[in-house]
Every structure is written in C-alpha cells, then in structure tokens.
C-alpha cells in the first residue's frame, strides 16, 4: 500500500508558479537593470539614477511624502485603534468593520470621491500638490494602519495596566511604559503597510491632477517610454528598500492578512 503519492508533492504546481512568476521576474529585473538598451552590461542606469537631479529629487520627495503620510496615519490611527480596543461599547465589531470596509471598495473610486470633495473646497488641486498628496495617501491607506494597531492593542492583557497602577504608576506612566511598548508590533506592522505604498502608489497623485512625481511614477514613465532598463533600475532600487524595510520591521507575517483585509 505504499503508493508514490506524498502530501508534499501537492505543492509542486505552486512551487513552479512561484519560480516562474515570482523569482524569475526578479532575476530579469536585476539583469535588465545592469544592461543598456544594446544588451551591454554596465552600471550606466545606476549612475544615471544617482547623477540626475530629477530622479534624486523624486527619491527625496517620495521619502518625505511617505514619511509625512505615515506620521499622519499614525496620529489618526493610534488614538482610534486604542480607544476602540479599550472601549466597552457593544457595537465594537461593527465599528471596526466600518473602519476597515474601505479596503474592499475599489481605491480608484474612493479617490474619485475624495477628489470631488477636495475640489469643492480648494478649486484647482494642483495648487497644493504636497498637501493634497498627503491627504490622498492618508485617505487611501488609513484602514491599513488602524487594523494592525487595533488587533495588537486588543490582544494586550488589560490586567497589566491595573498591575502598573497598583505598583504606583499614574495613568500617563502606565500608558508610556506599558501600553506603548506592548502596542509597538501593531504600530510597526501598520507603518510597513503605509510607508512603501505611499512611495509607490502614484495613481493617487495622478488622479488628484497632481503633477508631482514619486518613485512609482518613474517606473510608469519609463514604461510609457519603453525603457525597460531604466524602469528595471528603479524597480531594483525599490526592491532593495523594501528588503531593508522588511528586515527592519521584523518577521511579522500577520501583515499579509492585514493587506488582504481579513478581519474575520
């Protein structure tokens, strides 16, 4: 009865799929990044990136934009996640669901709604490109910050706060020395959900009639110009930043489920 079938063989199709459609594209990106349009190897694309004031300016601009967006998301999401997780209201689940629901509505439609509303207040959105970019990105990514922070805080054993109070900490001290450190994994997971998309999701800016460029827009413009090599170099630089970021953020694999929007 010892057949040749083993359960681990079930993974073969997916293993092949990952090899061809996940690993191979990365190899291609690296090889295109270090060749020119004639196929000659070299570091011309890398030098172009770091000597062109435009691309460097774009890198700095995206970093600043992503930083400000992440900070504002955090300033909104932490109090919201904290208060919701600590509150004893009965409709907690329903309110969390409402906070998360935008994840399931197509983001281009949500940005359309935001754009119409902003236009009513501001007129031409191109007059305040940075502010509108931050508003757009914050609007798009806020749920991805609220969910991990809420999840983390609701997992914290609340008796720890009582213990801190019994040991003589006032509420502020208890918050800073107990709550804040324990909620950090959620904060870090939230930051990694917001920072990178804010550097790359250029469609949000495009839709807000914003002429400013972020790292993602560079890939878009190389793509439109059929410059695969330049686009690959930008992709590679982003990939390296993503790797560094993932290492810094630690091995939190719950973020996959956050992005997938699984609350249930």
């Amino acid at each position: 009865m010892k057949g040749t079938f083993q359960r681990k063989y079930l993974g073969i199709p997916y293993a092949l799929y990952l090899l061809v459609f996940v690993i191979l594209p990365l190899v291609v990106i690296v090889s295109y990044a270090f060749t020119d349009s004639n196929g000659k190897p070299g570091i011309g694309n890398l030098l172009n990136f770091f000597t062109d004031p435009n691309t460097l300016g774009t890198l700095v601009y995206s970093l600043v934009l992503a930083f400000v967006t992440t900070l504002i998301c955090l300033l909104i999401a932490y109090p919201v996640g904290y208060l919701l997780a600590m509150s004893s209201i009965r409709s907690k689940g329903a309110i969390l669901m409402l906070m998360i629901m935008p994840m399931w509505i197509n983001f281009t439609l949500r940005i359309t709604a935001l754009k119409e509303l902003l236009t009513m207040f501001e007129g031409n959105l191109a007059f305040h490109p940075f502010m509108n970019s931050v508003i757009g990105m914050t609007y798009d990514f806020l749920p991805f910050m609220i969910l991990p922070i809420y999840n983390q805080i609701s997992r914290i054993d609340k008796s720890l706060l009582e213990a801190a109070a019994d040991l003589g900490a006032d509420p502020t001290q208890a918050f800073i020395r107990v709550m804040l450190p324990l909620s950090m994994p959620g904060v870090i997971s939230g930051i990694s959900m917001v920072f990178l998309p804010a550097m790359t999701n250029y469609v949000v800016l495009d839709m807000l009639y914003n002429s400013t460029y972020i790292m993602g827009s560079l890939i878009g413009s190389y793509f439109s110009a059929y410059d695969w090599h330049g686009g690959s170099m930008i992709s590679l630089i982003l990939l390296i930043m993503i790797c560094l970021f993932t290492l810094l953020a630690g091995k939190d694999e719950s973020q996959g489920n956050v992005r997938g929007g699984s609350v249930l």
Binding site: F21, L24, P25, L26, V28, I29, Y32, S192, L196, P197, M199, T200, N201, Y202, G216, I219, G220, F223, W228, G231, S232, S235, L238, L239, I242, F245, T246, Q255, G256, R259
Partner: peptide, 15 residues
C-alpha cells in the same frame, strides 16, 4: 506580499 504592486506589475510585464 511585501513588494510594491508597481514593481510586481512591471517585472511580470518585462518577463
């Protein structure tokens, strides 16, 4: 999962 969708889309297109 962690990669930016722009990079995923672009690299698939190139390949």
């Amino acid at each position: 999962v962690v990669n930016a969708d722009v990079v995923t889309g672009f690299s698939i297109c190139i390949l």
